Amino acid sequence: MDSTSSNLGDFLEESVLLDESQYQEGFKDGYRDGLVSGKEEGREVGLNTGFQVGEELGFYEGCIDVWNSVIQIDPEAFTSRVRKNIEQLEKLIDSYPLMEPENEDVQQMLENIRLKFRVVCANLRVKLEYEGQPSSSDKDTVAM
């Protein structure tokens, strides 16, 4: 092998090594930045989701408060079946683990609360639905 081909081989090898080192450096930078932005996005999603769940549970609690006020004023206003379903709904909401965000049962528990709420509403023959916080476009429409 002559010195020219040896120099060309060294040049190619250095070029490949430089390319690989730049790739590794870029990967490390991207990974580090991804961890930071992933945590920030995760925190934001968690905050929004927690707020939405709290708002929905608050809606159900408000309905229960109204129904319990009616029961205090007139215990015979609702059938015993309806009163029992209201009590069960209240217990479901009270048992919801607000301070345990990693509890794997929260989604099923929320579904059970929604189902029991629909049962109470059906027994009362009222149509109540939690529709969430209106979006900014909905607020503009209402204001007109």
Results as ranks from 00 to 15, higher is better:
Ser3Ala: 09
Thr4Lys: 15
Ser6His: 05
Gly9Glu: 13
Gly9Ile: 15
Asp10Met: 10
Glu13Lys: 13
Glu13Asp: 14
Glu14Gln: 14
Ser15Trp: 07
Ser15Glu: 12
Val16Asn: 02
Val16Cys: 01
Leu17Ser: 08
Leu17Arg: 12
Leu18Gln: 10
Leu18Thr: 12
Asp19Asn: 02
Ser21Cys: 12
Gln22Gly: 00
Gln24Arg: 15
Gly26Cys: 11
Phe27Val: 15
Lys28Leu: 13
Asp29Ser: 14
Asp29Thr: 13
Gly30Thr: 08
Tyr31Ser: 10
Tyr31Glu: 05
Arg32Pro: 00
Arg32Gln: 12
Arg32Tyr: 04
Gly38Glu: 09
Glu40Ile: 15
Gly42Phe: 12
Gly46Val: 09
Asn48His: 11
Thr49Lys: 07
Thr49Gly: 01
Thr49Glu: 07
Gln52Cys: 02
Gly54Trp: 07
Glu55Tyr: 06
Leu57Asn: 04
Leu57Lys: 10
Gly58Phe: 06
Phe59Met: 03
Phe59Cys: 03
Phe59Gln: 01
Glu61Gly: 01
Gly62Cys: 10
Cys63Leu: 08
Asp65Lys: 08
Trp67Asp: 01
Ile73Trp: 02
Asp74Val: 04
Pro75Gln: 07
Glu76Ala: 10
Glu76Trp: 00
Thr79Tyr: 00
Thr79Asp: 05
Ser80Gln: 07
Arg81Lys: 15
Val82Leu: 07
Val82Glu: 04
Arg83Met: 11
Glu90Arg: 05
Leu92Asp: 06
Ile93Tyr: 04
Asp94Gln: 11
Ser95His: 08
Glu100Phe: 14
Asn103Pro: 07
Val106Tyr: 05
Leu110Ser: 07
Leu110Lys: 05
Leu110Ile: 07
Glu111Thr: 13
Asn112Pro: 02
Ile113Thr: 04
Ile113Lys: 01
Ile113Phe: 08
Val119Thr: 15
Asn123Ile: 06
Lys127Leu: 02
Leu128Glu: 04
Leu128Gln: 03
Glu129Phe: 15
Glu131Leu: 14
Glu131Asp: 10
Glu131Arg: 14
Gly132Ala: 05
Gly132Tyr: 04
Gln133Arg: 11
Pro134Ser: 09
Asp138Lys: 03
Thr141Val: 15
Val142Pro: 00
Val142Lys: 02
Ala143Lys: 13
Ala143Gln: 08
